[in-house]
């Protein structure tokens, strides 16, 4: 199946569309949901879509994992693997940092809903203005 005028096949771009779907879903969760933990889950979904964005172009059909051996000649691209490997570990470290912030916010405000926190923030300043 060819897209009119572009000469691109839909099958050839299938991985990009999956990546895009995950990215949109992650972005939507981050924007739409007020719960801070849910936001972090959305953020990690967004992050995994980026992993896919990097890894998918590196794959060669008929290639094998990039571990050198005499039996194979075609290897998938190892460079994205290296980059994403480090990205995953950094991702979980930042996730932990975010969760620590959430826990602190929960202790300070007694809530992890964004709008409740904002209204709590607004309340004292409004009181000051009225005085």
């Amino acid at each position: 199946m060819t897209l009119a005028g572009t000469g691109m096949t839909l099958g050839g771009h299938f991985t990009y569309f999956i990546t895009l779907f995950l990215m949109i879903a992650g972005l939507f969760i981050v924007i739409a949901r007020g719960n801070l933990i849910k936001k972090l889950v959305g953020l990690s979904i967004f992050q995994t879509s980026v992993y896919l964005l990097y890894i998918a172009p590196g794959k060669l059909v008929g290639g094998t994992a990039p571990i050198l051996s005499d039996a194979f000649t075609v290897y998938s691209n190892p460079l994205p693997h290296v980059l994403i490997l480090t990205a995953i570990v950094v991702g979980v470290a930042t996730l932990a940092l975010g969760l620590a912030l959430v826990v602190r916010i929960r202790e300070a405000y007694g809530s992890i809903e964004e709008d409740e926190i904002l209204s709590l923030d607004a309340a004292p300043s409004r009181a000051e203005q009225q005085e």
Partner: peptide
């Protein structure tokens, strides 16, 4: 996708 190292980490 042949990314065995990454899959293990994930």
């Amino acid at each position: 996708m042949d990314a065995v190292d990454v899959a293990m980490t994930e």
